[in-house]
Write a protein that binds this DNA or RNA. Sequence first.
DNA 1: GTCGTTGCAAAGCGTTTGCAGCCTA
DNA 2: TAGGCTGCAAACGCTTTGCAACGAC
Lengths: 138, 138
Amino acid sequence: MARKTEQRRWIRHVFQTTERPLTPQEVLTRAQRHISGLGIATVYRNLKSFNEEGWLKAVELPAEPTRYELADLDYHHHFQCDDCGRVYNIPGSPNDMASLYPENYQVSRHQVLLYGQCAECTAEATTHHLENAAVASL
Amino acid sequence: MARKTEQRRWIRHVFQTTERPLTPQEVLTRAQRHISGLGIATVYRNLKSFNEEGWLKAVELPAEPTRYELADLDYHHHFQCDDCGRVYNIPGSPNDMASLYPENYQVSRHQVLLYGQCAECTAEATTHHLENAAVASL
DNA sequence: GTCGTTGCAAAGCGTTTGCAGCCTA
DNA sequence: TAGGCTGCAAACGCTTTGCAACGAC
């Protein structure tokens, strides 16, 4: 059934060389470095089928486009940086939440989301702060 | 500045008489019982301004339209029913999650989402099951 | 009467789909 | 060569915006 195309090859490559969930746009941008003619529709179609065949897993965050990551990663939470918007994977345990389950509903799964500032943006902010301080001290 | 209109009056009323976060569509449907001519654009505009003035708070869930709820509710988690899609408020404490915060990022807030089957849908499913059992026994 | 507010329709925006041509097997 | 795959453009669904009429004060 499924044929091996250049497009698919490079979309796969993108996920094999990254460590965080990616949006369709991010995938397109990264894959286009290798096949410039790649269209966004092809990206959407392949993300969907990779997801259905179980190679990718959808990562959905509030008010954000659906991201995707490799399906075989260990259990983890997600962290989104308020500054750059990137989403990172955070180690965690599925049992962290058991005590929070209400009794009147049948809870079958949960999702934990963390928000704040990532290491990179924290460093950047510090640098700018120092730069500004330097300017101010002139 | 802000004028008292019938539209606003009834949109407010909707939130004062419900106990769970509502989508713009749900707000429209409920408010139209009192002002039939109400337009969806007016609902969006007012939800936005109520949110900005701090009377409402946005409740964002993955792959779902933004819902709104009264801003002065106690801290709680959200639970979405896989069957009916309704979102319910669940008691909880902001401290539940402290132990999950990673050290390499500046975590400033978190969100906990629970998914499963609500009491109403569980009851409904049981009823149907009994009905089917009854039919099967004929 | 002023100008904030509303309803309608059009515009946006991200995602999906129809279709003709392309390319894998 | 058959038919799955792709790129383009149109279609979609939800949300926002432009605009003329309306109505609160």
